[in-house]
Design a protein around this nucleic acid. Structure first.
Lengths: 245, 245
DNA sequence: ACGGACATTGTTGCATGCAAGGACTCGTTT
DNA sequence: AAACGAGTCCTTGCATGCAACAATGTCCGT
C-alpha cells in the first residue's frame, strides 16, 4: 500500500513525459522502449496505457498500441462549455433540494477565503495559488452535494480533460490585467451562486453557474489569441484556434 | 481483423455472464477460473476486466481484482436525469447553430418512421423494435450534430450505463397500457423537438428535450413500482427503489 | 535510377511462470 | 465449544518468452 505499484509508477512517468513534451502528440507509444525507459516490465506499461486511454491522454493506434493524443483548442472549449452545463445542473439540483447547514458553511468559508486571497493590492503567486485551491474546493463541494452520482462522475471526467477544469486556467502573476479583472469578476459570481443556492433559486443558480464557465472560456481565448501566459504543458499539447462565436 | 481478438472474446463472454445472472452483483471476479471458463489466458481477461471497469460494469475490489457492480435504481434514475440535461444541451446547440438540410431530412425521416411504427392498432414486437431503432437513430443524430465533441462523448458514456439510454426502456408487447400511451406521447415530443430545432428555438428545444428524458424515468418507475415488464438482465442487475420525488 | 522482392528488425497480442499476500481450513489449547 | 495459530491453497501483480504481423532496409533485376 505504501510502495507505489508498478502500474502507478508507469502512469506517473507517462503523464510527466506527455506534459513535459518528451512525448509529443501523435507520437507512437511502444511498450518495450517505454518499459525500458521507465524501469518496469511491459505488463504495467500496458495497463497504464489502458488507463491513460480512459483519461483521454492517449488513443489507440491503427494496428494496435497507442498514440499520444493531440488536443485542439476547440475540444477544450467544448469541454469547458459542457462543464458549464453540468455544473449548472448541479447548482440547480442543490438549490432545489436545499443545502445543508454544513455545506452552506463550507461554501461561505470558500467565499471568505477567495475574498481574502484577492484582497491584496497585487496578485502574488501565493494569493493565486490559494485562490485556485479554494476554487477547486468550491466547485467540488457543489458537484458532490448535488446528489446525483452520474453527474458527479461526468463532472470528474470532463474536469480531467487537460485545461478544462475550473481551476486549470486561473491566471499566474505574469498574466495580463484583463485576466486578473476576470478573476475578480468570477469570484463575485461565486457569491451570487451561493446566494442563489441557499435561497432555493434553482433557475438562477443554474444560469449563473453556466455563465461562470464562460470565464474559463474567456481565459482560453486570451491565452490563444493574445498570447497570454499559459499553464505548463499547454503550448505542447494544445493546437488550433477557436472558431469565432 | 476478421477473427475476434482474445480480449474481445473475453469481453463478450463476461458481459453475457453478467447480464444473464451467471455472475451476480458483488461477486468476485477471479482471473484464473474466468480464463479457464472462457478459454483464454489471463492477459486478455485482465484487459477485458479493465475495459469493463471503464464501462462501469465492474469495480475494483479491496486487495486487488474486481467485483461485479451492483446498480441501484437511484443510480440509473440519476443517469437518465443527466442524459436529459446533456441531450437538452445538444438540442439547444443545434437549434442555435442551425440544422443542415441533410440533418433536417434525416430527422424528418425518423419522425415518419416512428409514426409508421406506432400506426397499427396494436404494438407488435416488430413495431416496437422498429420504434426502438428509430429512437436510437434520432437521439444519435442530435448528439452528433450538436458539434461539441466532449458532449457527444459524455452522452455516449451515460447511454452506456445499463438501462439509461434513450431506447433502453422502450416497452415490449407485454408491457402495460400506461407505458404504451407514454410511448405515443414521447413520439409526439419528438415532433415538437424537431420543430424547435429547425425553427432555431434554442430554449424551447432544450426544455423539451429535458422533459423528454422524464419519459424514461417514468418507465423506470413503472417497472420498479408497478412490476411492469422489464428488459433482459434488469431484475438481476438492478436493486433498490427511487426516492419519492 | 527505380521498383520489387526478400530479409531483418521492431512491436503487439498472448501465454505462462514466479513470488508475495490474503483467505480458508484444520488442529491444538484454553 | 470457542479462539488462536500454523499451514496450505488460491489469487493477484508482475516479469518474460514466443509467435505473428508490420515496417523498414537492402539487394538485385530491368
Amino acid at each position: 500500500m505504501s510502495a507505489p505499484s508498478q502500474v502507478t509508477r508507469a502512469l506517473i512517468a507517462l503523464r510527466e513525459r506527455i506534459f513535459s513534451g518528451a512525448l509529443r502528440p501523435g507520437e507512437r507509444l511502444a511498450e518495450i522502449p517505454l518499459a525500458e525507459a521507465i524501469g518496469v516490465s511491459r505488463t504495467p506499461v500496458r495497463l497504464a496505457l489502458a488507463e491513460l486511454e480512459k483519461e483521454g491522454l492517449v488513443e489507440p493506434a491503427p494496428g494496435g498500441g497507442f498514440l499520444v493524443r493531440a488536443f485542439t483548442a476547440r475540444e477544450i472549449d467544448d469541454a469547458i462549455e459542457l462543464r458549464g452545463t453540468l455544473e449548472g445542473m448541479a447548482a440547480r439540483l442543490l438549490a432545489e433540494h436545499g443545502a445543508s447547514r454544513a455545506l452552506s458553511r463550507a461554501l461561505s468559508d470558500c467565499l471568505a477565503e477567495g475574498d481574502s486571497a484577492l484582497a491584496g493590492s497585487e496578485l502574488t503567486a501565493e494569493a493565486l495559488q490559494r485562490y485556485a485551491e479554494m476554487n477547486r474546493r468550491f466547485h467540488g463541494l457543489i458537484a458532490e452535494a448535488a446528489g446525483n452520482a452520474a453527474l458527479a462522475r461526468a463532472l470528474a471526467m470532463v474536469s480531467a480533460i487537460p485545461f478544462a477544469s475550473a481551476s486549470a486556467l486561473v491566471p499566474s502573476p505574469g498574466s495580463s490585467a484583463a485576466r486578473h479583472r476576470l478573476l475578480i469578476y468570477a469570484h463575485e459570481q461565486h457569491h451570487a451562486i451561493v446566494e442563489a443556492i441557499t435561497g432555493g433559486q434553482g433557475a438562477r443558480a443554474e444560469a449563473l453557474m453556466r455563465e461562470h464557465a464562460c470565464n474559463t472560456r474567456a481565459n482560453l481565448r486570451l491565452i490563444l489569441e493574445a498570447g497570454d501566459a499559459a499553464p505548463p504543458g499547454f503550448r505542447t499539447l494544445v493546437s488550433g484556434r477557436i472558431a469565432a462565436a
